[in-house]
Amino acid sequence: MKKLKNDKLPCSDNMIIYTIGFTKKSAEEFFKILAYNQIEQLVDIRLNNKSQLAGFTKMKDLRYFLKEIAGIEYYYFDYLAPTKDLRKLVDDWESYSSEYLKLLKSRNVLNRLEPDFFQKSTVFLCSEPMAEDCHRGILTSYLQEHWHNMEVVHL
């Protein structure tokens, strides 16, 4: 992929990536938010997306609900999830952020994610209600540093 002079990867004009956490949202509220924002595809970036604690967002159930309720495609990108060891650092946000960024770089995320994938209205899903307390906020900031014309909207 061709790089620009400022070392940012080209992407479509005014690309918007949304993020959402499901905690503290009812299923009704969650799906209404996605529908209102005309989301076409959801990318699950959670480490634990199969546990009972995930409620209506357990991977298999969520894939079905998204398609049936809102016509949204479901994807799981495990290489965007933190590791179990990294999650132990979550109480030390500075260390957690630093280590998660190192993980993204070691997993070669910028070469694995294609900006063209985000031509469709896309939302990153995680658990935390607020992006500033979640790795999805770190991830989207990292992508903004490297992708040209990318906007982030935290739902």
Score class of each variant (00 low, 15 high):
residue 109 V to R: 06
residue 123 V to R: 10
residue 121 S to G: 02
residue 121 S to W: 04
residue 93 W to Q: 04
residue 106 S to A: 12
residue 108 N to R: 11
residue 117 F to M: 08
residue 114 E to S: 15
residue 112 R to K: 15
residue 89 L to I: 06
residue 124 F to G: 12
residue 119 Q to C: 14
residue 89 L to R: 01
residue 99 E to N: 14
residue 100 Y to E: 02
residue 112 R to Q: 05
residue 109 V to Y: 06
residue 118 F to L: 13
residue 104 L to K: 08
residue 124 F to T: 12
residue 102 K to V: 08
residue 122 T to P: 13
residue 92 D to K: 05
residue 104 L to M: 11
residue 120 K to D: 02
residue 102 K to G: 03
residue 107 R to L: 09
residue 122 T to L: 04
residue 103 L to R: 07
residue 100 Y to M: 01
residue 111 N to Y: 09
residue 92 D to W: 08
residue 123 V to F: 04
residue 95 S to Q: 12
residue 111 N to K: 07
residue 124 F to L: 14
residue 113 L to E: 00
residue 109 V to W: 05
residue 95 S to A: 15
residue 100 Y to W: 00
residue 123 V to T: 05
residue 98 S to F: 08
residue 103 L to M: 10
residue 119 Q to S: 13
residue 91 D to S: 10
residue 92 D to Y: 12
residue 125 L to T: 09
residue 119 Q to M: 09
residue 106 S to H: 13
residue 113 L to K: 14
residue 124 F to S: 04
residue 99 E to L: 07
residue 107 R to I: 13
residue 108 N to W: 12
residue 96 Y to R: 03
residue 91 D to W: 13
residue 125 L to K: 07
residue 93 W to E: 00
residue 114 E to K: 15
residue 124 F to I: 13
residue 121 S to T: 15
residue 116 D to M: 07
residue 103 L to G: 05
residue 116 D to F: 04
residue 103 L to Y: 06
residue 116 D to W: 01
residue 120 K to S: 11
residue 94 E to I: 09
residue 120 K to C: 03
residue 111 N to M: 11
residue 112 R to A: 05
residue 95 S to L: 13
residue 90 V to W: 03
residue 125 L to N: 07
residue 112 R to P: 00
residue 109 V to N: 09
residue 116 D to E: 12
residue 104 L to I: 06
residue 90 V to L: 02
residue 107 R to H: 11
residue 120 K to M: 05
residue 113 L to G: 08
residue 118 F to D: 01
residue 116 D to A: 13
residue 117 F to G: 07
residue 110 L to P: 02
